[in-house]
């Protein structure tokens, strides 16, 4: 099981080394790449991300890899977007005046809206994820703490737009989508940072690396 290679996409907007460290710790072979020129060989792709939506999408477009990611998502390649890497998988992001995303999932990424008793933004720290029962969540508690740090989030309303998907839900005064998985079980988005989430996060990444 350990001979798979997880490719980590470095478009210049992610905290790549933490993800590398996690896979190294798990003894999962991994390789960081800055383009998808040799995408044929990729079975597992991680898109980490910190920063803002607009500049991330700009970088993806300037590197001409949008098309390749789309192709990979339609093949039997497992793609995991982390934090901003998840957000850009949606159609649209409001951050910095708004921009189009990759569109793997329907809906858009917006800022938290608090009607009363506003909570601090960004949402920082560990919070519980109510997980779906899919393979990537194997051996993780039904509600487990994961680390979050974000100002924008995928609202609960997108569940109606993506009826066939699986969701993980987290509450920060309002319920939001902290995890999404497509019906084919090959495209995953995690708003939380598994590489920063102690034991649960490592298990999540290990499960991802073992998908086949």
């Amino acid at each position: 099981m350990k001979n798979k290679i997880v490719h980590i996409l470095d478009c210049g907007f992610g905290n790549i080394s933490s993800v590398e460290n996690a896979f190294n710790f798990l003894m999962v072979k991994n390789k960081t790449i800055s383009n998808l020129d040799e995408s044929d060989k990729i079975t597992h792709l991680v898109i980490p991300g910190v920063g803002n939506f607009k500049s991330a999408i700009k970088k993806i477009k300037s590197k001409n890899i949008e098309k390749k990611i789309n192709e990979l998502s339609k093949k039997k390649c497992f793609i995991l977007g982390i934090c901003l890497g998840m957000q850009i998988m949606f159609e649209y992001g409001d951050e910095n005046g708004g921009s189009k995303g990759l569109g793997f999932f329907k809906g858009s990424c917006k800022k938290f809206i608090f009607k009363k008793n506003p909570l601090p933004i960004p949402h920082v720290g560990f919070n519980l994820v109510k997980k779906p029962k899919t393979k990537i969540w194997k051996k993780i508690d039904k509600e487990a703490p994961f680390y979050f740090i974000h100002e924008y989030r995928i609202g609960n309303e997108i569940k109606k737009l993506n009826t066939k998907c699986f969701f993980g839900i987290t509450n920060y005064q309002e319920d939001f989508v902290s995890y999404i998985e497509n019906s084919n079980g090959n495209v995953f988005g995690a708003q939380f940072h598994p590489e920063k989430s102690q034991k649960n996060g490592l298990k999540f990444l290990e499960n991802f690396s073992q998908l086949s």
Binding site: N15, S17, S18, N21, A22, F25, V50, K196, S197
Partner: peptide, 28 residues
């Protein structure tokens, strides 16, 4: 290498280049 929690790096950050390097070297 074996710590999987968020990391903050600080001290003497006086220019963008150094800040950038902090992020590059694992700072969240």
């Amino acid at each position: 290498k074996k710590i999987f929690v968020p990391l903050t790096i600080g001290g003497r950050i006086k220019d963008f280049e150094y800040a950038k390097n902090c992020f590059k070297n694992g700072a969240d």
